[in-house]
């Protein structure tokens, strides 16, 4: 079996390099049979595609998608420098 550490590194690389995702900001942790995806993305579609790409890269493992959606809020208070 591939060492969890290397599985995580590989998934992280696939997420960065796969044209469907090109996502550098997702944390991947592997514990036993479980793959955890964490981070923030701006759309539900991106969230789903990341999960799909991670699943393809880890056949036989269980992928847990803990990625949250960030909503771009209205501009807030200004800062005086």
């Amino acid at each position: 079996m591939e060492t969890p550490h290397y599985v995580a590194a590989r998934v992280q690389r696939v997420l960065a390099e796969d044209d469907r995702t090109t996502e550098l900001g997702i944390r991947v942790d592997v514990r036993g049979e479980h793959v955890f995806l964490r981070g923030q993305v701006p759309s539900e579609k991106r969230r789903r595609v990341i999960e799909e790409v991670a699943r393809e890269a880890t056949p036989g493992l269980r992928v847990h998608n803990e990625i949250t959606l960030v909503e771009v809020r209205e501009p807030g208070e200004e800062e005086h420098l």
Partner: peptide
């Protein structure tokens, strides 16, 4: 954007 979490920051 994921840091400021708003459409933009404003500095004066």
């Amino acid at each position: 954007l994921p840091v400021i979490k708003h459409a933009y920051a404003v500095y004066c």
